[in-house]
Design a protein around this nucleic acid. Structure first.
Length: 661
DNA sequence: GAGCACTGC
């Protein structure tokens, strides 16, 4: 390994790091930056006063890279070289080089904001711009001011715009290390095809007929089954999503077909809805895809778009995750750090999320009681930030603890954390089977999907976590085991937060009936105060409250039942709004009017201007921001005419009851 | 009555 390109730059790297607190290292695939950079600094004594931390966006990468480095150092994993990922800490007092996911480093920073145990922090794969890496970039900028004398920060990436990061860190130096890829010939087609799926199929057959041996990797937006039956000889056709850009390395690939598209999840802060859209990839992504052809020998990349489209239409870089996600959790995290002069609208991000998105986050946090009407974090909010969950789910756990149904809530929340991986990938053959077996699973008494998830886990518990039971019921074993791990971790954190011995045991009793779930549903209602929907008067469509008014439906996969008149509950809370063919609420739970009334009152007095620190002295940049806020109509709920009086009456009853107490 | 890429604490 001594001849990796990066080693030839050792002197230059060491010299630059010595003179500067922050250094950007651009290294193409095959440069050895992830494995060699920490070893170089280790050799030069940088681990004497602290640990060298290397972050990775993915767990597998943290584990595999650390294993390779341990091997090169000739030590066992967990000794001088170790890793830390969720559920698994393979480090010891001897550890000097520590690989960890960026999520783990963020969590460590919550309890030790100065990260004193580290002398060097290397943020690897920064070009991927994961939400966590972006937060860390902002935190590092603050941290080097406090720890100027004893902390070195290195930002490394494959194709990141080095100049931009350098400017972000007060014009820090940028080192470029060449990679060891084989040349890849790029071929563009002359005009955009009508169908990129069809075009990629044609191109694949074309390569198969004309070109010498070598596997073909095809980047599409989903696993479309268009390549069956397989060709008669042994050439492999690998159809892949963007997973092969980063997570997956396929050996033997010589040809890449790049459709130029990717399916991307986007959050709309004004409607609270997620959507999955097929969008054009960025130049960075196109380069990444082409690079996959040159890992073992010279290769070819066929791009199913003209070069003019690449140059003129493609974005330089993918829109960072931070600009495509709901930021409630992120904002709560930053608020809980108690950074001096912390104003969330002024936090220094490499690419700032929109003001609208930040205000949406503040609004949500206010509704779940994590911040007060002035935008300051509450003691409840502090506890919520300690839980590795979305704010609505942390709020549910804390409320459940008050209502003596923590054990049930822990199960529901854990099941939701792995929900997508529970059911097996749909295929024609298993579809019937799944439907059949699902009918054998509990139905949540018609109260909704959260209750069903609880019942499923409790049944599994009663079989003593029997793997065969999962298989019989077509539940993914890995998913269920993951749920069990999450539940254990959350139980421990809850014990710590409440400083008490809690009853977190999964219930073993035979369940009585609907009444059994009342407290749990109330806790869910309070936790999901930001995800509450009201049914329309005469039909089963719903309107999410607190967002721009849009009509949504309960997802057809839901087990929520209607009453004798065919009507669904007046109010439900939902886990997620997702736009596919239409806007749907996924995972809903029926809630009662009397729990909803205080939330409606809160929605009424919502004042985003105050939440975003409207009283503070704005600087020029912020001036512009606040003026748009002032003009904007506050998105409080306007109940439909004839229901307004009903809500008012219920609210008065509620307040009267409260007064009596 | 739908049908959804990928991560992570």
């Amino acid at each position: 390994m001594g001849d990796l390109p990066i080693v030839r730059f050792e002197e230059k790297i060491v010299e630059t790091v010595k003179e500067n607190p922050v250094v950007v290292v651009i290294g193409e695939t095959g440069s050895g930056k992830s494995t060699q950079l920490p070893q170089i600094l280790y050799r030069r004594g940088y681990a004497k006063s602290g640990i060298i931390a290397v972050t990775q966006p993915r767990r597998v990468a943290a584990v595999s890279v650390s294993r390779r480095v341990a091997q090169e150092q000739n030590v066992r994993i967990g000794e001088e070289v170790g890793y830390a990922i969720r559920f698994e800490d393979r480090t010891s007092e001897k550890t000097r080089i520590k690989y960890l996911t960026d999520g783990v480093l963020l969590r460590e920073s919550l309890f030790n904001p100065e990260l004193n145990q580290y002398s060097v922090i290397i943020l690897d794969e920064a070009h991927e711009r994961s939400l966590n890496t972006d937060i860390l970039l902002g935190l590092m900028k603050r941290l080097i001011k406090w720890r100027h004398s004893n902390l070195k920060v290195l930002i490394t990436s494959a194709t990141l715009d080095g100049g931009k990061v350098s400017r972000f860190f007060s014009d820090c130096p940028v080192l470029t290390v060449p990679g060891e890829l084989f040349p890849v010939e790029i071929v563009h087609i002359s005009e955009l095809p009508k169908s990129y799926v069809e075009a990629s199929l044609k191109k694949a057959i074309d390569i198969h007929v004309r070109e010498p041996e070598g596997d073909i990797l095809i980047f599409l937006t989903g696993q479309v089954r268009v390549f069956s039956p397989p060709p008669p000889n042994c050439r492999r056709f690998i159809v892949s999503t963007n997973i092969a850009e980063t997570s997956l390395t396929v050996d033997g690939v010589v040809y890449v077909i790049d459709s130029g598209y990717v399916k991307q999840r986007q959050y709309n802060p004004s409607t609270g809805m997620y959507s999955l859209e097929v969008v054009q990839i960025s130049k960075v992504q196109a380069k990444q895809r082409a690079g996959r052809a040159g890992r073992t020998r010279p290769g070819k990349c066929y791009r199913l778009y003209p070069s003019t489209v690449y140059h003129d239409d493609f974005l330089d870089a993918t829109i960072p995750e931070i600009q495509r996600s709901s930021l409630a959790g992120t904002v709560l995290y930053l608020k809980s750090l108690d950074l001096a002069d912390m104003d969330i609208l002024k936090f220094d991000f490499l690419d700032s999320p929109s003001v609208e998105s930040l205000e949406d986050a503040l609004k949500q946090l206010y509704l779940v009681d994590a911040i007060d009407e002035n935008g300051s974090i509450t003691s409840l909010g502090r506890k919520m930030a300690e839980l590795p969950l979305e704010p609505s789910l942390s709020r549910t756990l804390l409320e459940a603890n008050e209502l003596d149904c923590l054990s049930q809530a822990l199960t529901v929340v854990s099941m939701l954390s792995a929900e997508t991986t529970l059911l097996p990938a749909p295929s024609k053959s298993s579809e019937k089977k799944r439907r059949h077996t699902l009918s054998n699973l509990p139905d949540g008494f018609g109260l909704g999907d959260h209750i069903q998830l609880l019942q499923i886990y409790e049944q599994w518990y009663q079989t003593d976590y029997n793997i065969d039971w999962c298989k019989e019921n077509n539940l993914q074993v890995r998913g269920m085991v993951f749920v069990r791990d999450v539940r254990k971790q959350l139980s421990q954190i809850m014990q710590k937060i409440t400083k008490g011995s809690l009853d977190v045991q999964t219930s073993n009793r035979r369940r009585g009936g609907k009444q059994e779930y009342k407290s749990l549903r109330k806790a869910l209602c309070i936790g999901y105060a930001n995800q509450l929907a009201e049914r329309m008067i005469r039909h089963n469509g719903y309107r999410p409250l607190g967002f721009k008014s849009e009509l949504v439906q309960v997802h057809p996969s839901s087990v929520l039942k209607s009453d004798e008149d065919g009507m669904l509950p007046n109010y439900v809370v939902y886990h997620e709004l997702i736009v596919t063919s239409r806007p749907f609420m996924r995972n809903v739970c029926a809630v009662e009017m009397r729990w909803v009334v205080p939330i409606l009152a809160k929605l009424d007095k919502l004042n985003v201007f105050k939440l975003s620190g409207g009283s503070s002295q704005p600087d020029n940049q912020i001036q512009e921001v606040t003026s748009t806020v002032e003009k904007k109509e506050i998105t409080a709920v306007q109940p439909p005419e004839d229901r307004a009086s009903m809500i008012q009456a219920a609210r008065e009853r509620f307040l009267a009851r409260k007064g009596q107490k």
